[in-house]
């Protein structure tokens, strides 16, 4: 399997602010890319462009070989997306919501129940499947968001802070899930937890002030810290990489 995401020179301006200033990204099947960067670095904005929610000010995006702006509907079929904060309709039950997403994604009616069962089992939603989303705990809401993203078993997964707000057990489970799916899919996830990158990612990309300041394996990432640092080496490397860029006024 080949290249599933190819984004070239993405730029996004909001009026005066340049949130993203020329980010390029190529991701192959079998890669799990961890997107790192300080608050406001442009991670969410980049992911919103990758999914077509935001139109880039400049640059173009190909997903599964389809240009997003030329063939948006078919390109959108190839990914699942967990937006920041895992939004969902609060007045629906988990089952109603996932059924709605399945229908909207064009999954044939006779296969919806089977897909739902598979995902509900995989994300451990069995106990809450008939509960109204509004009454779920934060962690369960996030899991509903993940379930929604993988319902159609897409080749590409884009997840904005998938483990934010999960307890350590759930964090572990979601990481296992991502790792398992990562062998066949192209996955891009953002996170503020550096250990997560070591635990699940095959590649780390650090962006600061809208630019890529590092792109390499988690091991390379750690080597960016000087030898005398023995504890929290990734934190140290992260600070070193992002400090310079963050001094540029946004």
């Amino acid at each position: 399997m080949g290249e599933l995401i190819n984004a070239r020179n993405l730029v996004k301006s909001f009026g005066e602010t340049q949130a993203v200033r020329g980010v390029s990204l190529r991701v192959n099947a079998g890669e799990v890319v961890g997107f790192l960067g300080p608050n406001g670095a442009g991670k969410t904005t980049t992911m919103r462009m990758l999914t077509g929610f935001l139109d880039p000010t400049a640059g173009d995006i190909a997903l599964n070989g389809l240009l997003l702006h030329e063939d948006p509907i078919r390109a959108r079929q190839s990914f699942g997306y967990l937006p920041e904060g895992a939004p969902a309709y609060p007045d629906m039950t988990v089952r109603e919501y996932l059924t709605f997403i399945a229908r909207a994604r064009g999954i044939p009616a006779r296969r919806i129940a089977e897909r739902l069962d598979a995902v509900v089992a995989r994300i451990h939603l069995r106990g809450v499947v008939d509960q109204v989303i509004d009454t779920l705990s934060k962690g369960f809401k996030r899991r509903v968001g993940i379930a929604q993203a993988i319902l159609h078993d897409p080749p590409i997964l884009i997840m904005d802070e998938p483990t934010d707000g999960l307890d350590p057990n759930q964090k572990h489970e979601v990481r296992e899930l991502i790792r398992a799916m990562g062998s066949t899919k192209a996955i891009v996830l953002s996170t503020h937890i550096l250990e997560e990158v070591e635990a699940v990612c095959t590649r780390a990309i650090v962006i600061a002030a809208g630019r890529v300041v590092f792109d390499g394996t988690p091991a390379d990432f750690e080597r960016k810290a000087p030898d005398h640092v023995t504890r929290n080496r990734m934190d140290y490397a992260f600070r070193a990489m992002t400090a310079a860029a963050s001094e540029v006024p946004l």
Partner: peptide, 10 residues
Amino acid sequence: GTIEILTTLP
């Protein structure tokens, strides 16, 4: 924020 999901559905 569901608009982000709705407008990225195929």
